[in-house]
Design a protein around this nucleic acid. Structure first.
Length: 443
DNA sequence: TCTGGGGTCCTAGGACCC
DNA sequence: TCTGGGGTCCTAGGACCC
């Protein structure tokens, strides 16, 4: 029997998290900024209607923000991560299967007969227990459920839930912009909507012999257009992914629920700096921090990595090409490891290879790949490591940092005077994860 | 002055093997 | 001098997601 999918998606999630702890902001315009207070990454509906767009650089939005008294927050991932866990735990109690798709979205299976009532129950409970408002889309496939969800968000009358399982889905699809379909990005949307003949010599001949020419591009504007699109054409221009989307629009499920977290294939720690830095000493500190973070991430998932890449770059917004430089170097380590000092040592020597004086660097990072499970890793014949000691040391470090906050224990190499540290001028408290930042309530 | 930080999947093309 | 048809693996690049 066909399944029924639901997608449960928090409304303006980061903004909603902030509002839970500052209810006075409920009807006010609010935005949340990316790391380094660079771009706008979440907006309340009030902020959206002021014309603040997703991804807008903060300095460009600043005039609107000043003028309309928009409340602004630096991003507080400790808070959002914890709120996300609460939302997911709540949903989990109501559904037979849940895929934790992103920090603010879960795909679920629903009982077809009671899906709509169940959705309302989930929505109300999540709001009551966590304070976070969510919208729910229901449909026989994930792509359709995403569309239902997006319609639910835009129509206050829907009460936060739209069910597209009925036979009249086309009624919605014909008004749904192809650009807003899950899996269709800017490039594909532009391509689909264009109407050009392209340059196919075969078709030239065809046309020359008096037949009407088939178009290379088709002017596909809506979800309904894409649903009715020719499979071969789609496969050719949008690869199998495009074809799957069309099938999903037709109600044929191609994308199952992913119930188990797949082990990561690569792991990246990088950050741009609050200000430009020039010396290799400062870069070393930043790289040391990323090495420590990367080790921590690996250990938390019981993974180990063999391949290490270090990269540094200047700002890409520089106008003078002489001031732009970016480079990376990588190496295969001898054995898969999650031992921070080993990652650090390798990262340092890679950094030496790519550093060039005379540039103002804006970003550094490391990337780990060739990732295996820690207990399955292959030992090197040549390298004898006292693994027990290393594991013990890292466990102690992780435990202390978990209890007292990140970087309580850290490599000395990280230094103390962090010129490169990220800009976070409007950070809210970690209300839910730090005892000394728990809110006080006067009753 | 000021522009995020993670990830995934797919394909084409080259190198190499028999 | 001429000349084949398969396969695998790897990488780079391009698309997408939140």
């Amino acid at each position: 029997m066909a399944e029924t999918f639901g997608i449960i998606d928090a409304n303006n999630f980061y903004v909603s998290c902030e509002r839970v702890f500052q209810p006075a902001l409920e009807t006010k315009p609010v935005v949340v900024l990316s790391n380094n207070d660079g771009n706008i990454i979440a907006r309340s509906n009030e902020a959206k209607s002021l014309g603040i767009t997703m991804g807008m650089p903060f300095f460009k939005a600043e005039p609107i923000i000043e003028k309309n008294d928009v409340t602004t927050f630096s991003s507080n991932y400790a808070l959002y991560g914890d709120m996300s866990r609460r939302v997911m735990d709540t949903i989990d109690q109501f559904v037979p299967a849940l895929e934790h798709y992103s920090i603010d979205e879960a795909f679920v299976h629903l009982d077809r007969k009671t899906s709509e009532q169940d959705a309302h129950k989930i929505r109300n409970t999540v709001k009551k227990w966590t304070g976070i408002p969510v919208s729910i889309g229901i449909a026989p496939t994930k792509v359709l459920a995403k569309i239902a969800n997006s319609i639910a968000k835009k129509n206050p009358k829907a009460g936060g839930v739209i069910d597209l399982s009925g036979a009249d889905a086309d009624k919605y699809l014909k008004d749904f912009d192809v650009a807003d379909i899950w899996g269709i990005g800017r490039r594909y949307a532009q391509f689909l909507k264009s109407e050009e003949k392209g340059n196919n010599p075969q078709l030239d001949l065809w046309e020359a012999s008096g037949f009407e020419r088939m178009r290379e591009k088709l002017k596909i504007e809506t979800a309904l257009d894409l649903k009715n699109c020719d499979d071969k054409w789609l496969r050719k221009h949008l690869t199998v992914k495009g074809q799957r989307i069309a099938w999903e629009l037709r109600g044929i499920s191609c994308l199952p629920l992913e119930l188990f977290e797949k082990p990561k294939k690569g792991l990246c720690c990088s950050r741009s700096f609050g200000q430009g830095i020039k010396t290799i000493e400062d870069l070393r500190q930043a790289v040391a921090m990323h090495a420590a973070r990367a080790g921590e991430k690996l250990r938390r998932q019981n993974l180990a990595a063999t391949h290490l890449t270090v990269f540094i770059s200047t700002s890409s917004f520089r106008l003078n090409p002489d001031e732009i430089y970016s480079a990376s170097a990588s190496r295969q380590m001898l054995i898969p490891t999650s031992y921070s000092p080993a990652i650090l040592e390798n990262a340092y020597s890679l950094l030496e290879r790519i550093y060039k004086p005379g540039f103002e660097y804006r970003k550094a990072g490391i990337f780990l790949s060739d990732i295996t499970f820690d207990n399955a890793k292959q030992q090197s014949f040549f390298l004898k490591v006292d693994e027990k000691k290393q594991t013990g040391l890292m466990q102690a470090v992780d435990k202390i940092n978990g209890r007292f906050g990140r970087h309580t224990v850290r490599p000395l190499a990280m230094g103390f005077d962090h010129k490169w540290k990220m800009k976070q001028e409007k950070l809210s408290s970690r209300y839910t994860t730090r005892l000394n930042e728990i809110p006080n309530v006067r009753a």
